[in-house]
Simulated scan of single mutants.
Amino acid sequence: MPTNTSELGDFAQRIEVLILPVSDVDRSRDFYVRLGWRLDVTPPGVVQLTPPGSATSVQFGPEGFTPAAPGSATAYLVVADIVTAREALVAAGVEVTDYFHATPDGMAPGLDPARATYRTRATFTDPDGNTWILQEIATRLPGRE
């Protein structure tokens, strides 16, 4: 079983903020606020938002804030009930793909028949094309909070 130690030691390391490459800061801010993400206090010119229940935020800013091309990011957005989450996103005007799930042979259409945790996904994109993979995780693996 893997351990959490390395040559660096065994100190806590957390991902707090991910930078999203966007072309229009105001449009992106409005999109994420429409999803119910909290607008955080940041330095001038920087926008930071945090999804409900998340310890990790996203940031974006003016041209040059990141060298990445707008729309080039992909990240997971974990939810406890993917059906409820997808319905809420669609109601907010977001285009969300149909469900698909992991099988031993790859991805298959639809919800996982057993609704097993970590299996079912759907995707959506923000106005720039950054991709969010919704993943249903109802029960975490041991050692995960």
Rank of each mutant, 00 (worst) to 15 (best):
L134W: 11
D112L: 07
E87P: 09
E16C: 11
P52S: 08
T103S: 15
G64M: 00
R140H: 13
D24K: 09
V47W: 12
E7C: 10
H101R: 04
A88Q: 12
V25L: 11
T120S: 15
A122M: 06
D24G: 07
D30N: 14
D40Y: 04
A102I: 03
A122R: 10
R27D: 02
R14F: 09
R140M: 05
Q59E: 04
Y76C: 03
A85K: 08
P67K: 06
D105M: 03
I137Q: 11
L89K: 05
Y118P: 06
P52L: 03
H101C: 02
A88G: 07
A80W: 07
T74Q: 09
G36L: 03
G129S: 10
L77E: 03
D81R: 03
E136S: 10
N130R: 06
I15C: 12
P70D: 04
R119M: 11
P44W: 06
L39C: 04
G61C: 01
L49P: 05
S57K: 06
L8N: 12
P52D: 07
T103W: 14
V22K: 13
P43Q: 04
L20M: 10
T42R: 09
T131Q: 14
V90R: 14
D30H: 12
Q48C: 10
Q48A: 14
S54R: 05
T139H: 15
V94H: 13
S57Q: 05
T50S: 15
I15Q: 12
E136V: 02
D126I: 01
L77Y: 13
W37G: 04
V25T: 12
L134M: 05
I15S: 13
L39I: 00
V41W: 06
V22L: 14
G143A: 11
E7Y: 09
Q135D: 02
D40Q: 03
F11I: 02
E7S: 12
D112C: 11
G9S: 08
I133L: 14
T84H: 15
I82D: 11
R119Q: 08
A91V: 01
G110P: 07
V33Y: 14
T56S: 15
P142D: 07
E95L: 08
T84M: 10
L141H: 10
I82F: 15
G45I: 01
I19F: 15
R144H: 11
D24E: 08
H101Q: 01
P70L: 06
L77M: 06
D128V: 03
T56E: 09
S6V: 02
D105V: 00
A75C: 07
T120F: 14
L20I: 01
